[in-house]
C-alpha cells in the first residue's frame, strides 16, 4: 500500500513537473511571432517577410508573420504593447507613421516610446508622390497649376491615415497651396491598386510600393519627399528641386518588443537581426524590394526614434496641420 501511494505521488509529481520543465527552456523555445500592423503586400509587410525568410538561418526557431492592419497601424501595435513581454511577440515596422507622426497629431492609447523597446532599425522608406500613367500631370508643377486653375480638390491615395505618407502629402498641399484631400486605405497595396485604377488623381507611397507599378508603366513618378534624392530611384527629383520647401524622413522601419521584455532576450533579438542585416542574400532580397538596408542597434535606434518624433512634431507645428 505504501509503495502504491509513493508511486502515485511520484506520478502526480511527474505530471506537474513536465510542464514546468517545458517552460524553463532557453529562449527561443518556440516560433517567434513577427506582427506587422499593416495589411499584407505593403512595404512593411514585404520587409517583414524578407526578415522572416532569413531568420531561420540565425535562430533555431522560425519566425511567423502575422498581419493585423487597422487604425493606421495602432490596432496591431497596441496588441503588441499589451502582449506578454517574453520576446515571442515582436513588432515589425517600428518607426512607422503611427509611431513617430501620429503622437503629435492625436492622443494615443499607448506611448510608442515608453511602452516599446526599440530592438533594431532595418530600413528607411522615403515618400514618393506618383500619378497614374494616363494622368495629365507630368510634374509637381502641373499639379499646382491644375489646382490653381480649376480650384478643385486633388484626391490623393495614401496608405494609412496620419502616416508618414499622409503627412508628407498634406505638408506638400499646405506649402504649395494645393487643396489636397487624402483618402486613407488600409495599407500601401490597396492604395496603389486604387490609384492604378485611376480612381484618384495622385497618390503617395514608398519606393517598394510604387516602383513595380512605375516599371509596369502604370504610374509616373512626380517627386521624392526627402532632403536629397532616393538612391533607389535616382531619376526622380525631390520636392525641393521643384520649388516646394517640404522634406521629411519618410517612414522608419525597425523591430520592437513590449516594454518589460528581459534584457538578454532583447540582446538576442538585436544580435540576430543585425546578423541578418549583413547577410548578402538578405541584402539582395531587399534590393529587389527597393528598400535600402540601414540597420542600427537598439541603443542608437532608440535615440533615432526620439529625434525623428521631435522633427515631425516641429514640422507639424510649423505647417499647422491638424487632423479631425
Amino acid at each position: 500500500m505504501k509503495r502504491l501511494t509513493a508511486l502515485l505521488a511520484v506520478m502526480l509529481l511527474a505530471l506537474f513537473l513536465v510542464p514546468v520543465a517545458m517552460a524553463a527552456d532557453v529562449f527561443p523555445s518556440k516560433p517567434v511571432t513577427g506582427l506587422v500592423p499593416m495589411a499584407p503586400g505593403g512595404s512593411s509587410d514585404l520587409m517583414a517577410r524578407a526578415l522572416e525568410k532569413y531568420w531561420g538561418k540565425y535562430s533555431p526557431q522560425p519566425m511567423v508573420i502575422v498581419n493585423k492592419p487597422g487604425g493606421g497601424g495602432v490596432v496591431g501595435t497596441e496588441q503588441i504593447v499589451r502582449s506578454k513581454p517574453d520576446g515571442y511577440n515582436m513588432y515589425i515596422a517600428y518607426g512607422s507613421g503611427h509611431d513617430i507622426v501620429m503622437p503629435s497629431l492625436q492622443k494615443m492609447p499607448y506611448d510608442p516610446q515608453k511602452d516599446l523597446i526599440a530592438v533594431a532599425r532595418v530600413s528607411i522608406h522615403s515618400v514618393v508622390i506618383v500619378t497614374g500613367a494616363n494622368s495629365p500631370f507630368n510634374s509637381i508643377k502641373d499639379v499646382i497649376a491644375y489646382s490653381k486653375k480649376e480650384g478643385k480638390p486633388v484626391t490623393t491615395a495614401v496608405s494609412v491615415k496620419a502616416g508618414a505618407v499622409d503627412l508628407a502629402l498634406t505638408a506638400f498641399g499646405k506649402a504649395a497651396g494645393v487643396n489636397i484631400v487624402t483618402v486613407p486605405f488600409s495599407g500601401g497595396a490597396e492604395a496603389t491598386t486604387a490609384l492604378a485604377g485611376g480612381h484618384l488623381m495622385i497618390g503617395g507611397g514608398h519606393p517598394s510600393e510604387v516602383i513595380p507599378h512605375i516599371k509596369a508603366g502604370r504610374f509616373k513618378p512626380l517627386a521624392v519627399v526627402l532632403p536629397q534624392r532616393d538612391p533607389s530611384m535616382p531619376d526622380v527629383p525631390t520636392l525641393k528641386e521643384q520649388g516646394v520647401d517640404v522634406a521629411t524622413w519618410g517612414s522608419v522601419k525597425g523591430v520592437a518588443v513590449p516594454a518589460g521584455t528581459p534584457k538578454e532576450v532583447v540582446k538576442y533579438l538585436e544580435t540576430t537581426i543585425l546578423k541578418i542585416c549583413k547577410d548578402p542574400e538578405f541584402l539582395e532580397t531587399m534590393k529587389n524590394l527597393n528598400q535600402p538596408v540601414m540597420c542600427q542597434g537598439s541603443e542608437e535606434f532608440t535615440k533615432f526614434i526620439k529625434q525623428a518624433t521631435e522633427d515631425y512634431a516641429k514640422l507639424i507645428k510649423e505647417l499647422n496641420i491638424k487632423i479631425d
Binding site: 510542464p19 514546468v20 517552460a23 518556440k30
Partner: peptide
C-alpha cells in the same frame, strides 16, 4: 500542429 498549449498557471 505545434500549437503551444497552456501548462497551467496554478502549477508553476
Amino acid at each position: 500542429l505545434r500549437v503551444s498549449l497552456p501548462s497551467g498557471s496554478w502549477w508553476s
